[in-house]
C-alpha cells in the first residue's frame, strides 16, 4: 500500500478521540453558547454538538434517557433536581451565569421618557413579562413588581411570554409597550432601538442563577467536564460577561 493511501485512514484515527460531545443548553443561552463553543473548540480541538430547548423540555428529555453529556440550564431548580435524583454527577453543579432584568421599550410614545415612571401609570399599555410559573426571568419580574408595590395594579395589563425571548419579541414588535426582558438579549443588534430602558436593580429580585451539571449515563465525561471547566474559567467567564450576564468573580 502506497503511503498516500494511508492518509485518510490516519486522519480518521486521529479524529476518533475528538468525537463530538453533545451538550444540552437552555434556549436563552444559545448566543453565548455559540461563542463559548467556538472558543473551546479552537483551544482544545474537541468538537461540541449543541442541543437546545427550554429547560423544562430538556429536563424531561434527560429524565427519559436523552444522552446529553452535560446540561446548561436556565435555572437552578432543574439541575438541583437532577442531582437529587442521581442523574447528575454529584458535586458537578455550579452557577455559570447570573441573569439581570431590563425594563425595555420600543414604543415611540415612550421615547425620551422615564421608563420606570411609565411603569407606575401604564394606562392602557401592555407590560410583557415571562411566565412566572415556567420561566426564571418571569419569577424575577414578578418578585420585582411585588417589591415595588406594583404587582396588583399591573395585573390586567400583563401579558406572558412563554420564555424570556418571546417576552422580548412582544415588546420589539410593539405589541406590548413595555417589557421586563433579559439584559443579555435586549442589547442585540437585530432589535429596533430602545425608546427607553432601565436596569432593574438586582437587589429587587432573587438572583436569576443559571446552573450547569455534568450528566451521568454517558461515556463523554472527560470532554464534557473539560467544557464545563472552560466556561467556569477566565476565558469562558469573560465571554459570558460580555453577553450581559453577571458571573462570579
Amino acid at each position: 500500500m502506497r503511503p498516500h493511501r494511508l492518509l485518510p485512514l490516519l486522519l480518521l484515527l486521529s479524529s476518533a478521540h475528538a468525537e463530538p460531545v453533545t451538550i444540552a443548553v437552555a434556549s436563552n443561552f444559545i448566543t453565548p453558547m455559540a461563542e463559548l463553543v467556538a472558543a473551546f473548540e479552537e483551544a482544545t480541538g474537541q468538537a461540541v454538538r449543541v442541543s437546545s430547548a427550554s429547560t423544562g423540555v430538556l429536563y424531561a428529555a434527560i429524565r427519559n434517557g436523552a444522552g446529553y453529556a452535560a446540561l446548561l440550564a436556565a435555572d437552578s431548580e432543574r439541575p438541583r433536581l437532577l442531582e437529587a435524583d442521581g442523574i447528575a454527577v454529584p458535586g458537578s453543579r455550579f452557577t455559570y451565569a447570573v441573569g439581570t432584568l431590563q425594563l425595555w421599550s420600543a414604543d415611540p410614545a415612550l421615547a425620551g421618557k422615564d421608563c420606570r415612571g411609565a411603569l407606575d401609570d401604564l394606562g392602557n399599555r401592555r407590560l410583557a413579562i415571562a411566565n412566572p410559573v415556567t420561566a426564571p426571568y418571569g419569577a424575577a419580574a414578578q418578585a420585582f413588581l411585588q417589591q415595588a408595590g406594583l404587582w396588583d395594579q399591573v395585573q390586567d395589563r400583563l401579558v406572558f411570554g412563554q420564555n424570556i425571548a418571546q417576552t422580548l419579541q412582544f415588546v420589539a414588535t410593539r405589541n406590548a409597550s413595555l417589557g421586563l426582558v433579559a439584559t443579555s438579549q435586549s442589547g442585540s443588534e437585530q432589535l429596533p432601538d430602545a425608546t427607553c430602558q432601565w436596569a432593574v436593580p438586582t437587589s429587587m429580585h432573587p438572583p436569576i442563577e443559571q446552573q450547569a451539571v455534568l450528566l451521568q449515563p454517558v461515556d463523554e465525561h472527560a470532554a464534557a467536564a473539560a467544557f464545563l471547566e472552560f466556561i467556569a474559567g477566565p476565558e469562558g467567564r469573560a465571554i459570558i460577561r460580555a453577553q450581559g450576564y453577571e458571573v462570579a468573580d
Binding site: A60, L81, N131
Partner: peptide
C-alpha cells in the same frame, strides 16, 4: 398543558 409540563 404546555405550562404544566414546563413546570414539572
Amino acid at each position: 398543558i404546555y405550562d404544566q409540563v414546563e413546570s414539572l
